[in-house]
C-alpha cells in the first residue's frame, strides 16, 4: 500500500470514529435531551467532524452529498464506492 492510500485510509478511519461518537451521542441525547455534559461533547465533536470532513474532501474528493463543489468531470462518481472490494 502506497503512502497516499495509507494517509487517505487513516483520515477516513478518523472520520468514521468521529461520526460514530456523534451518532452514539445523538441517540443518547434523544432520550436524555437535558444532559449538559453530553451536549458539550456533542457540540465539540461536530466541530471536529466538520473539520476532518472538509479536509478529506479537499484532498481526496467528495464524501458528503450536497456538501462539495465539483470540477469537471463530475467528481462524485470518480472515487470508489464504499462497498467495493480491495479499496
Amino acid at each position: 500500500m502506497d503512502k497516499y492510500s495509507n494517509d487517505r485510509e487513516s483520515l477516513m478511519k478518523e472520520i468514521m470514529a468521529m461520526d460514530f461518537t456523534l451518532y452514539d451521542l445523538n441517540l443518547y441525547l434523544d432520550t436524555h435531551p437535558c444532559d449538559g455534559r453530553a451536549l458539550m461533547l456533542y457540540n465539540l465533536s461536530v466541530q471536529r467532524a466538520l473539520m476532518l470532513k472538509s479536509m478529506y474532501q479537499n484532498m481526496y474528493g467528495p464524501i458528503i452529498q450536497n456538501c462539495f463543489t465539483s470540477t469537471c468531470p463530475w467528481q462524485w462518481i470518480e472515487s470508489p464506492w464504499p462497498w467495493q472490494k480491495g479499496v
Partner: peptide, 15 residues
Amino acid sequence: WYYEKKLEYPVKIKN
C-alpha cells in the same frame, strides 16, 4: 436523507 460515501464501520473482507 443524504448519502455519505463511506460505511459506518469498515468492511474489508479479503477472502
